[in-house]
Design a binder for these strands. Structure first.
Lengths: 223, 223
DNA sequence: GACGGTAGGTCTACGGTGTAAACTTGTCAA
DNA sequence: TTGACAAGTTTACACCGTAGACCTACCGTC
């Protein structure tokens, strides 16, 4: 009579929570319907009542990431400053989940938080002087670049286990150190940086700067 | 008696050929040890004599792509023109295999053709005024962006089957057309371009331009 | 020329995956 | 009270990567 529903369980949001946790520290391949089901004390097939199939579940993961983007309020700063802030907000939301970042792209034009981001970005770009179509192409590529930036974060991308990580880095360093400095003077000289950039913050700052500077550049060329 | 070897078969290069063909028109998930073995009339386990495991095989695929990059000869043009050409050569090699492009990143610092590309890129960047370490970071991000550019090629990324492709596009268009033009004026206005850019060549040209312009931009900022 | 090592195949088997189809069961509306 | 329906269960299937033991034809060496 009281509308308690003790028999109904399996909150889809909680399932996405679990999936997020698993994917974050073991990679998306570790996300398994059986494992998820087990964590929620349920049969694997139960998940199909809430997600069409595994891809649908992963899409929900992507939506979750996009929902974490907090768009800065429009101000009266110049358009490129505002663009910089919006894009920074985007990577900030993704940074925590580097192995899942690429799930977001295909959801941007589907889920609400992504659409808000898209609209705002295009707004800024047209304010900067792009035609809507050019803004679409430039914006699309910028978002792709930033997703790639996060996906390939050379620090977070490594296995979470710190000793295995250090081992993997050592092996890569050794393989570069074995190269002939005569044949590859610059690669060997900057080997450490190539394998793993010095600072994560600098890495991301540079990434956003590159994108914004690129947009600035092509805008001038077109005129 | 004649030194013919009718019993030995299974040329690893041919296996990579097959894998490439399968991945190109059905996606990398369709590449299966069993399927590959079947195509070469061999037991799945036979492949393990030539590849440590599946990842090793995919790495060989990545190497194959990188080997197709034809670096332009150094000239006396300004550094940014040369950089543009090198990066264009890179995406040109990948364009034919958009679903495999991301296999290349992890092989660049391992296989010879990738190292040549890396060294040449850093050469140009230092000539432009970057320190070796900055060249390493900027170069790395540029390569990542370009790989993402190819990977997300909105035309080639679609399923190869043209009728299914047209269907998928139609569905996306419909979903965007259903949005409120009041809430998302720019997104709905540029819907077609967002879903699928007008010209592939323009898409790639813009991509490379963005990267090169970005590098130019951050270089000036640093001084 | 006999012979042992080895490279390149085969066979069998295991544990894991996503998911289709048919079933049970608890809940609420009529 | 009944009956529809949503949620979870059971069973089953086809497929995957790969470990381990085995065969077998070749090759260089004495």
């Amino acid at each position: 009579m009281i509308s308690k529903e003790p028999a109904r369980r399996l909150d889809p949001d909680k399932v996405v929570d679990s999936a997020l946790a698993i994917a974050d520290d073991e990679g998306p391949a570790a996300v398994t319907l059986r494992r998820l089901a087990g964590q929620h004390e349920v049969t694997p097939m139960a998940l199909y009542r809430h997600f069409k199939d595994k891809d649908d579940l992963l899409a929900a993961l992507g939506d979750r990431l996009l929902a974490d983007v907090v768009l800065p309020e429009p101000t009266d700063e110049p358009w490129d400053r505002q663009l910089h802030k919006v894009l920074t907000a985007f990577v900030t939301a993704l940074r925590g989940h580097p192995r899942l970042a690429d799930l977001t792209l295909m959801r941007i034009l589907v889920a609400e938080p992504g659409l808000a981001l898209a609209e705002r970005t295009m707004e800024i770009l047209t304010e900067g002087g792009f035609s809507p179509d050019d803004a679409a192409e430039v914006g699309r590529q910028s978002i792709c670049s930033l997703i790639a930036l996060v996906t390939n974060d050379p620090i977070a991308r490594e296995v979470s286990d710190p000793i295995a990580r250090e081992d993997s880095l050592r092996r890569k360093r050794a393989s570069l150190a074995a190269l002939s400095p005569r044949k590859y003077p610059l690669v060997t000289a900057a080997a450490d940086t190539l394998i793993c950039p010095t600072s994560t913050d600098r890495y991301y700052a540079l990434g956003v700067d590159l994108v914004v500077a690129g947009i600035h550049g092509v805008l001038k060329e077109e005129k």
